[in-house]
Amino acid sequence: MLPFNTLLTIQRTAAITSFLAGALVVAVVIFLITTSSTSEDKTSVKHKVYKLRGRYFFVLTLCVIAGLFISLRLLPYTKFQEKPDEIVTIVAMQWAWKMAPGISDKSPADFEGSNEITLPAGRHIQFNVTSSDVNHDFAIYNSKGVLIAQTQAMPQYHNKLEHYFSEKGDYHILCLEYCGMPHAFMVGIIHIN
């Protein structure tokens, strides 16, 4: 299970790799513009570029395979090897969150829960997420405003999001799927004690 400071590293890694890739593209553009005043026979250019392309193709293919191999082992779908310690039912509705411990046997429309819930730290929590009307997205933010986990809240379906809260504090729930006019005001809170 990844603690949230590791997840923050995922965002940082995304930033650093994207910046480096962008810088490489800019460097290639500048190189092409500044060297274009020289004239060289097309066959000779082709020979040079194709040689480089062969190597690039080989390296890129390896990177793609390695990238897939590593990242496909870090899926957010089923994180826990063992059974969760707590199950929480989450029902999204226009425009509030209903949250309550346990598995509910009521229909999403009849389910009763609160916008606020308290859960223990250091436990494996499974959120059983659905919606009583339209699509929403159950997104958990830590107190620093970092998005640490999310899943869609869909009518007719139950998405199971598993998360381990290693740190105590207040975690806010925001909706990350456009669900109508007050979408940006659909807020909930999880207290981790």
Binding site: A14, A21, V29, A149
Partner: peptide
């Protein structure tokens, strides 16, 4: 040339977001 560069930069950022583990914190 600059259009191809824009495609390359945006394309790379798209590939980053198309990684499931990363998408979990960048989606929407």
């Amino acid at each position: 040339l600059l259009g191809v560069a824009g495609w390359a930069i945006g394309g790379f950022a798209a590939v980053v977001d198309s990684t499931i583990a990363v998408n979990a914190v960048l989606h929407n």
